[in-house]
């Protein structure tokens, strides 16, 4: 939070003086923020914030990519995350019949890989299917139509899961053994480290995909100007489908991570998580993938920070307050460009 106004001034690039300070501020502000947060929360909560942030960041990426490419707030995206968690718990718990943690690394590793693989594939497929059936026919329709459709899809997904698994929490097998890595006096759960590493590597992979591959270039050009991209021979339909595929797969991964970390899932988990992840996407500058990841972590810190200060019940309200503040003061987000945004 404290980083917000400072960065906004630095990112504005209006004041000539700022030009020389900008790169420095870009490094100093986050560093100060992290050190301050660490000092304030202590190591355990700091890692906890990173873990939560990683989950939000993974979900936020899907929002930001889809918004970037077809300017649709995909309300159903939060529910993709929730379904990802259910796919994972169904696969691990009901199909493989696992319940507790697995300490044998030789068994654990393939199981984890399989869980991510299954959830990401299934969710990716569902994401593409939804896009084909519900959103694609409405391309070019008035803006309201796909938004309403998206909210409808969100309700459908929630209620399908509720009919199948009931309105209460369902247990998800916590197969990752709970042991701590001790660094000095700090005890950090190995699971958290695993989650952060997995999430970060996915984000790096996504960034490489977008910047280095042909498909990534197609995505960027479609987002910048769909008609021009089409004229240049980009297959728009396929590009949009792939965007949904990747976004949904990342949400699926976030679902797996959520299951490992918290061990329970409920049909309406996606609602709150989706709202927070969207806030993260706006905070980072919607359409900007790096921004979404950054925003996710910031939201994680805000939420855990609120808990540390004893305001855990107010978590959602605080996140919402952040959303409104960002929209008032810097609607294009931390990493978005400010020029051209008209009141």
């Amino acid at each position: 939070m404290t980083a917000l106004p400072a960065t906004s001034e630095a990112g504005g690039a209006r004041v000539p003086m700022g030009a020389s300070l900008k790169p420095l501020l870009r490094l100093v502000v986050p560093a100060v923020f992290l050190v301050g947060a660490y000092a304030f929360m202590g190591p355990e909560q700091f890692v906890n914030a990173l873990t939560r942030g990683a989950i939000y960041a993974l979900i936020a990426l899907g929002y930001t990519m889809v918004y970037g490419i077809i300017e649709l707030i995909n309300f159903a995206h939060g529910d993709m995350f929730m379904m990802g968690a259910f796919v994972s718990l169904t696969f691990l718990g009901q199909i493989l019949g696992l319940t507790g943690s697995i300490t044998d690394i030789a068994r654990l590793a393939p199981l984890l890989v399989a869980a991510f693989f299954v959830s990401m594939i299934v969710m990716g497929a569902i994401g593409v299917t939804i896009e084909r059936l519900a959103y694609k026919p409405l391309r070019g329709a008035p803006r309201l139509a796909p938004l309403i459709t998206a909210i409808g899809v969100s309700f459908i997904l929630q209620n399908i899961v509720m009919l199948k698994y009931g309105p209460f929490q369902t247990n998800s097998p916590k197969i990752f053994p709970s042991f701590d890595i001790v660094i000095g006096s700090a005890k950090i759960p190995a699971l958290s480290v695993f989650i952060i590493v997995v999430a970060l590597s996915m984000m790096v992979a996504l960034q490489l995909f977008i910047s280095r591959t042909r498909l990534g270039r197609a995505m960027r050009s479609t987002a910048a100007d769909r008609d021009a991209a089409q004229l240049m021979g980009v297959n728009i339909n396929r590009t949009i489908a792939i965007t949904f595929l990747i976004g949904a797969a990342l949400a699926g991964a976030a679902g797996v991570v959520n299951g490992l970390q918290y061990g329970v899932s409920r049909f309406d988990d996606g609602f709150q998580a989706g709202l927070k992840a969207f806030t993260a996407a706006v905070l980072g500058g919607i359409g900007n993938t790096v921004g979404a990841a950054l925003g996710g972590f910031i939201i994680g810190f805000i939420e855990v920070g609120a808990t540390v200060m004893g305001f855990s019940r107010w978590g959602p309200a605080i996140v919402f307050g952040v959303l409104v503040i960002v929209l008032v003061f810097r609607p294009s987000g931390l990493l978005g460009q400010q020029l051209g945004e008209r009141a």
């Binding site: 106004p5 906004s8 001034e9 504005g12 209006r14 008032v328 003061f329 810097r330 020029l339 009141a343």
Partner: peptide, 14 residues
Amino acid sequence: ARPERIGFESLIWV
């Protein structure tokens, strides 16, 4: 003209 210090305007609102 080019917008100047519009960040401060939001401050004035609040």
